[in-house]
Write a protein that binds this DNA or RNA. Structure first.
Lengths: 257, 257
DNA sequence: AACGGTAAGTGTTTTTTTAACACTTTACGT
DNA sequence: ACGTAAAGTGTTAAAAAAACACTTACCGTT
């Protein structure tokens, strides 16, 4: 028994590596038309000549503090960018880069920032959801901007893969939990809500069937208030009630097998 | 722009920590009656006296090799324990221990194995599914055994939490993908399949409705073969056809919104 | 004041899926 | 041949999904 213990331990100790853990945040924003994601324009400048060597895009992210949980780190990153707190954050996976996956830009970037390009970077991914109209980016002029998710074709490191995972995770989640409301302003119309589902899931939905379906959701509260200043019949506004949701939520495994 | 870059980099470098990445495998096994999980009996023996200080249970896991992906590490751990390869492995989350969460046993264990109890241990969790009857544990006598999941009440580190996440992830997955077949022998009866769903999901299902439902799954192939040696009407045997599944699988987002 | 444009809002029918429910069949062991 | 034990099988009612088109309310323009 003791021998067994020793063997396991020894192998554990030997294999310890120079590891870097980063938390990457896929910050989704919705603006009634499309789904956006917050990206950083990564610019590498040659020290001597001052010439721009390249510029490309990355997800927002940072390394983790010593006394911080993973989720705390994600919340901090989000706070630093937007000033927002108590935002829904969902972990959707861990991604273990090895140097084999690094593109030339990435190699140059790591070298320039004094890091060992041979160490493993483990990224833990979180996504969060924001109504873009609620957000004023704190890092103005700091290369952080909204980009339509549909237009993103390539990102640094393995961030494009990570973004795709985040999107997939968001879609799954959206089907079962009322997280869509996080992407809308406090008061919204049913058409806006429908548009959100259409954009995120990438489908078209029938207006009447959609309304019938969501009418069953007790936590969707109709207000005695209407849209103003629109050149058509003004829509009724609705709110999401977290309180009602918590009370009426069913177990996720409401089995349909 | 260049100033911005420098700021981001500096903060990244400063926060690099002494991190340990481990991959933990939640290896589920099914034996027609209950769901089991493979656990390691962790025994700490006092060097001088040879006395056993404590014994408790952990998930199987190991640190990651330098040239290995996360999934490779999970596959290696599984192979070392069972000799099995090409087994379905699903990542279900990353868990960032900090020293605050360590119980006294864990502190003692880390100290005895020469590791810094103040470094962060980041566990990436994978689960895998086995039919227990297919498995012969390679590590015989090495404290690795099957335990009924229902009987597990506490584990070392945060492994109990991790196990619960794995179980939840397994349940979700089971509802949408035909992963249940991994938990059964190659040929199985419908009652065995039903039992599997009941055990994993923790529900009771109606036999006729269950059969109606799975009759729609084209990848469930009835064989011209029956159970033998049972003291009742022998059941027809079925197989899972991965080929048919791949051909007929629908997009996961077969939206019901 | 009338009119055109625009999105909001509203019901019915058909089809599909789910849920509830009990008896007959077939093999083995005694 | 008889008991035991699990396999196998169909109908009905309720709920959910899918398909589909016209009227309403407000704004801006003429």
């Amino acid at each position: 028994m003791s021998a067994n213990v020793a063997i396991i331990q020894e192998s554990m100790v030997k294999k310890r590596l120079n590891n870097t853990i980063s938390v990457d945040c896929v910050i989704f924003g919705f603006d009634f038309e499309k789904l956006n994601v917050l990206l950083v324009d990564r610019v590498l400048v040659d020290e001597k000549s001052g010439k721009e060597l390249f510029s490309d895009l990355t997800l927002t992210g940072n390394h983790i503090f010593e006394d911080e949980s993973l989720e705390d780190a994600a919340a901090r990153i989000l706070y630093d960018l937007t000033g927002l707190e108590n935002i829904y954050l969902k972990q959707f996976g861990a991604f273990g880069d090895t140097e084999r996956l690094l593109k030339p830009n990435d190699q140059a970037w790591l070298k320039a920032s004094g890091r060992d390009p041979h160490s493993r970077i483990l990224s833990v991914g979180y996504y969060s959801l924001l109504a873009t109209e609620k957000v004023t980016l704190k890092w103005k002029g700091r290369n952080v901007k909204w980009y339509p998710v549909a237009d993103v074709t390539d990102l640094a490191f393995d961030h494009y893969t990570i973004l795709q995972y985040a999107l997939q995770s968001l879609r799954r989640e959206l089907l079962y939990e009322p997280i869509g409301f996080e992407l809308l302003p406090e008061k919204f119309t049913l058409s806006q809500l429908q548009k959100l589902y259409e954009v995120v899931l990438g489908v078209e939905l029938d207006k009447r069937n959609f309304r019938k379906k969501i009418a069953r959701m007790k936590y969707l509260i109709p207000l005695d208030e209407k849209q103003k200043g629109v050149a058509h019949k003004p829509a009724r506004l609705y709110m999401f009630s977290r309180e009602v949701y918590e009370k009426t939520r069913k177990e996720v495994f409401d089995f349909n097998i």
